[in-house]
Nucleic acid binder design. Structure first.
Length: 497
DNA sequence: CGGCAAAAACGTACGTTTTTGCCGGTGCGGTACT
């Protein structure tokens, strides 16, 4: 009853959404919690309310600085004024003043990386935390192993902070990812709340092509026919740009591309235009989507197959947040998997490169580690991976590393890399299998997330004979919006309209 | 690996063909430089 009263007092709601209350109760009784809840369940409310009821403060680890800024704004708007984000957006003096008054804040957002900064870390250690929240916790597994290794340091940091209760939240985590989260956050005896990833209003279609031209034609047909707004995912940055060029040539103007190679401002602009419905379609790499809360996305097309099932589920999950019928269409060509395969094979150093990096470590004084890593031709991700692990093993601080230690380190790293490759190749094989299999796509997907298979229903997937044409039918609205937008642009350039 | 663009090689003077070489998702912070 006490929880319902607090819910009423702070939010004005009468009832919790599924999952919220159970997680809150576990947190308040001092348990670590892994919560996998679908988007729109109100994950934020859980740790806001928990922090308030614990009369303490929460440290929230968030993967993207842009997301953090949005969250801080949202917190402030909903009355949680004592909220701040510690990241590189802050200039030196602002950072200084936040750190000096850290105890006055109730909610502090951080990236995993910024806690490596010793000033920030010591400031964080100087106050008491009642809650350690890891938002989008699947990043630990998805990015921690190589791309953003400091995700693997979170357990260590939490321990230093005096082991506050840990709440890991995500919307999609396959069984292996759930295991990784529990393992790398060292959440012993954690309560696990897993809710279904099934999104009944999203119909799943897979179409295979042996000819890339035919696939392009089909994509253009779908983009023309399907009711928007929509997202198209491609494998490469260039692929996204090229598809947009083709669409522009065909007179479809309310389309733009988005990928990680663009400037921050440019990315923000495209994102805002899409959220404001000035753009009806966004063609992008997997850089786009996290933290996007546009409720009315009607379709997600995969122009190339993604590297694993969980990535696919995350990406199609951006459709139909308003619970209206939406379509996910994967257009598959066997060459799609070559690029993910290439990344898996090449992002981490091979045995020869490991030998080279760790040979004659004592002469390294004349050569910085990063010089050596570059000389060995190791990818940027591979370089970060090596730096992280060499740093962790302590060899960076030793003047002369004994032969025995060097050899054992080589062995450890080689084993780690091989294991990681095997896992990723396995995931790649899983999605290939999922694509090729003729059965119910939804059931197979749910099985991958450790869920019971569901009974087939009428509107389900291409394996269950659902019809994609029922999602056809563009609205007049789009061209209207475009004209208004075009008029505004003309006015900006002082042309007659 | 496979696709694509720039460089080199054509065989005859600037356009076409062949060869070489490089790149390919995801983001943070901080430092060096405009």
């Amino acid at each position: 009853m006490q929880l319902e009263a607090a819910l009423k007092q702070y939010y004005g709601f009468d009832d919790f959404r599924p999952g919220q209350k159970e997680i809150l109760e576990d947190i308040l009784s001092g348990h670590d919690v892994l919560g996998m809840l679908p988007t729109g369940t109100g994950k934020t409310l859980i740790y806001q309310l928990a922090t308030v009821l614990l009369k303490g403060r929460a440290l929230i680890v968030s993967p993207l600085v842009s997301l953090m800024q949005d969250q801080v704004d949202q917190f402030k708007q909903t009355g949680f004024k004592r909220t701040v984000a510690l990241n590189s957006f802050l200039d030196h003096s602002d950072k200084q003043s936040v750190l000096n008054h850290l105890k006055d804040y109730q909610f502090v957002f951080v990236s995993p990386e910024i806690m490596q900064n010793k000033y920030i870390r010591s400031a964080l250690l100087s106050v008491n935390w009642s809650l350690f929240v890891v938002d989008e916790a699947h990043c630990i597994s998805q990015w921690g192993h190589e791309f953003r290794p400091y995700y693997l340091d979170l357990a260590f940091i939490r321990k230093k902070l005096g082991n506050p209760v840990c709440l890991a939240l995500t919307a999609t985590a396959a069984v292996k990812v759930q295991e990784d989260i529990l393992k790398y956050l060292e959440m012993k005896d954690a309560k696990v709340h897993i809710h279904s990833v099934n999104r009944p209003n999203i119909s799943i279609f897979v179409e295979s092509f042996s000819d890339v031209e035919q696939k392009l034609d089909r994509a253009l047909e779908l983009i023309t026919e399907l009711k928007g707004p929509g997202i198209v995912y491609t494998n490469t940055r260039r692929g996204a740009e090229q598809l947009v060029t083709v669409l522009h040539e065909r007179g479809i103007q309310d389309v733009s591309y988005y990928h990680g190679g663009m400037d921050q401002d440019e990315r923000l602009l495209v994102q805002k235009q899409f959220l404001n419905s000035q753009l009806q379609l966004i063609v992008c790499t997997n850089a786009f989507g996290m933290g996007i809360n546009k409720p009315d996305i009607r379709f997600v097309i995969h122009y190339n197959a993604p590297a694993n099932v969980e990535g696919y589920v995350q990406e199609i999950g951006r459709a139909g947040r308003d619970l209206q019928p939406s379509a996910a269409i994967l257009l598959y060509h066997p060459s799609d998997l070559e690029i993910p395969f290439h990344f898996i094979e090449n992002e981490l150093p091979d045995d020869n490169q490991i030998d080279y990096i760790l040979s004659d470590y004592d002469v390294l004084a004349e050569q910085t580690l990063s010089e050596r890593l570059q000389l060995a031709g190791i990818s940027e991700t591979g370089q970060r991976f090596m730096e992280y692990h060499l740093n962790n093993s302590g060899v960076l601080y030793e003047k002369c590393v004994p032969e025995v230690k060097r050899e054992s380190l080589k062995k450890i790293l080689k084993k780690k890399i091989e294991e990681r490759k095997r896992e990723k190749l396995n995931s790649l094989r899983m999605i290939e299998k999922w694509i090729m299999d003729e059965g119910c796509k939804r059931s197979m997907m749910l099985k991958y997330f450790g869920e019971e298979e569901i009974a087939e229903k009428d509107y389900c997937c291409s394996g269950c004979q659902d019809e994609l044409t029922r999602f056809y039918g563009k609205e007049e609205k789009e061209t209207h919006i475009y004209q208004v937008w075009e008029d505004e642009l003309k006015r900006l350039f002082r042309q007659e309209v």
